[in-house]
């Protein structure tokens, strides 16, 4: 008998008393009921708690803010689908020579990504209550490696994409896409259960919330 049939047979045998699957009581909250200003305030509070850097700006100010944050970067990577307007603050006549484009047709090798200082991405949805940003691999976020290997992640969150709590957020996205939920910079509590920020993932997380 194959291992598969053997295991399924064992499990069926284990359940021969016929336990019933109970109804699932979903009496927990589905939404937060907060307005946008409150959502932004909560998200900022939670992100700062994780030692992320946060700026809340009007949508038109996003390019300037990105340019400021990238001032010290020797080079940075963006996915091809990034909102072109966001980089306007960096484009002088011939464009920005520090910029690398990562596209499905021409993905950057990992070794090259390792030499890149920063990455700029959009985001799919954010969760105010937990300070979580979810990337779903859409063209404005790119493949997972580009928001992982560079040490500085600049992530733009549109105010309209902020959900109050997790159920609200997860109901807005497609679960079969490659998803990354990010709550602050990489961190560890492995030494004496004290949290310290900065391990293998980006050690610096800048979140720009665009109103």
């Amino acid at each position: 008998m194959s291992a598969r049939d053997d295991i399924l047979g064992r499990i069926r045998s284990a359940l021969r008393d016929g336990p019933e699957a109970p109804q699932i009581p979903r009496k927990y909250r589905a939404t937060s009921g907060l307005d946008q200003a409150a959502l932004i305030e909560l998200l900022v509070d939670r992100l700062i708690d994780y030692k992320a850097h946060v700026s809340v700006v009007d949508a038109v100010e996003v390019p300037t803010r990105i340019a400021e944050l990238l001032a010290d970067a020797k080079c940075y990577v963006v996915p091809t689908g990034l909102d072109a307007g966001w980089l306007a603050g960096l484009d002088h006549e011939t464009g920005d020579r520090r910029r690398r484009l990562d596209s499905p047709a021409a993905p950057l090798p990992v070794a090259e990504l390792d030499g890149i200082d920063a990455v700029v991405t959009g985001s799919a949805v954010a969760v105010a209550e937990t300070g979580t940003i979810i990337l779903d691999g859409s063209p404005n976020q790119g493949r997972r490696a580009i928001s992982l290997v560079p040490d500085h992640h600049i992530c733009v969150v549109k105010a309209a994409d902020i959900a109050g709590i997790l159920p609200d957020a997860l109901r807005r996205i497609n679960g079969t896409r490659p998803l990354t939920m990010i709550s602050g910079p990489s961190a560890t509590s492995d030494i004496e259960l004290e949290r310290v920020e900065g391990v293998h993932g980006p050690r610096k997380l800048d979140v720009i919330i665009a109103r």
Partner: peptide, 27 residues
């Protein structure tokens, strides 16, 4: 919601990855 608060005592763990089979060009 249950896991991060129960394990590391955080509102959310820094990273969660979800994948559904093979995604062309990613991973």
């Amino acid at each position: 919601q249950l896991l991060p608060r129960s394990s590391t005592g955080e509102r959310m763990n820094p990273y969660t990855s979800l994948w559904t089979g093979v995604t062309k060009g990613d991973g």
